[in-house]
């Protein structure tokens, strides 16, 4: 089985000085929408409150996807919740960032062989940052946000552009699990075996970029 657990970085092609200034504001003011599907949510209150105080970095909770820049997937995602996450992500406005908490969005974690749980979040949505650990401690969360901020400044956190560019690929993957019709309790087969991987897509992209230059 080919796995695509990469923090892929699609550098912004049209990165210019103005975009750099905007990126400064984007990294200094990140509004979060946390999708509390799993146990990771419990790590957020300490991160936000007195001890670690996330608001220092201009990060704060927001009520709806329309307002938010940052979508936190705090734990495992079942197929049912995936549908909601996709809708929420698509309702967010560019630029938007997606962060997966813990090992579950990376590889399924302890639920890797459970039929209603999806194993690789980045097959369905563009993940800008994954935080390994089960669960990641607040220090790890803050550390990863620090890293995400650097990437925003450098114009590397462009998952939303990747999603736009390879929408067909993501959409096909989403449909595969969301519109699944065969019985779930059957000998397991990788539904994504014959799909081109994201790596391959990116390799093609790099070639295109090279051609541009």
């Amino acid at each position: 089985m080919k796995k695509n657990v990469y923090m892929t970085n699609l550098r912004d092609e049209r990165q210019n000085a103005w975009e750099g200034i905007l990126n400064y504001f984007r990294k200094r003011s990140m509004w979060m929408l946390y999708y509390c599907t799993g146990c990771g949510a419990v790590e957020l209150p300490p991160t936000m409150t007195t001890r670690f105080d996330m608001e220092r970095f201009g990060m704060g909770p927001m009520a709806t996807p329309r307002q938010a820049d940052l979508l936190l997937i705090t734990g495992y995602l079942s197929v049912k919740t995936l549908k909601r996450v996709i809708r929420s992500y698509e309702q967010m406005q560019d630029p938007k960032y997606l962060v997966g908490f813990g090992s579950c969005p990376i590889n399924g974690g302890i639920y890797w062989d459970t039929y209603p749980v999806i194993n690789h979040l980045e097959m369905f949505l563009p993940v800008d940052m994954s935080i390994a650990g089960c669960m990641p401690r607040p220090q790890a969360i803050l550390d990863s946000f620090e890293k995400l901020r650097d990437e925003i400044q450098e114009g590397k956190a462009v998952g939303y552009k990747r999603y736009e560019k390879h929408y067909d690929w993501y959409k096909a993957n989403q449909d595969k699990v969301l519109n699944r019709e065969d019985a779930v309790l059957q000998p397991w087969e990788d539904p994504f075996a014959d799909k081109p991987t994201l790596e391959a897509l990116q390799a093609g992209e790099k070639m295109e970029e090279g051609e541009d230059k």
């Binding site: 905007l22 504001f25 003011s29 409150t49 220092r56 560019d94």
Partner: peptide, 28 residues
């Protein structure tokens, strides 16, 4: 508010950053 809650809180110019960022985003 942050000091009342014993936090450090955002910088005093945070609202300017927020508004600027909000204007730079796309919208519906």
């Amino acid at each position: 508010t942050a000091r009342i809650q014993r936090r450090l809180g955002p910088p005093f110019y945070q609202a300017f950053l927020d508004v600027f960022k909000a204007f730079s985003k796309s919208s519906i």
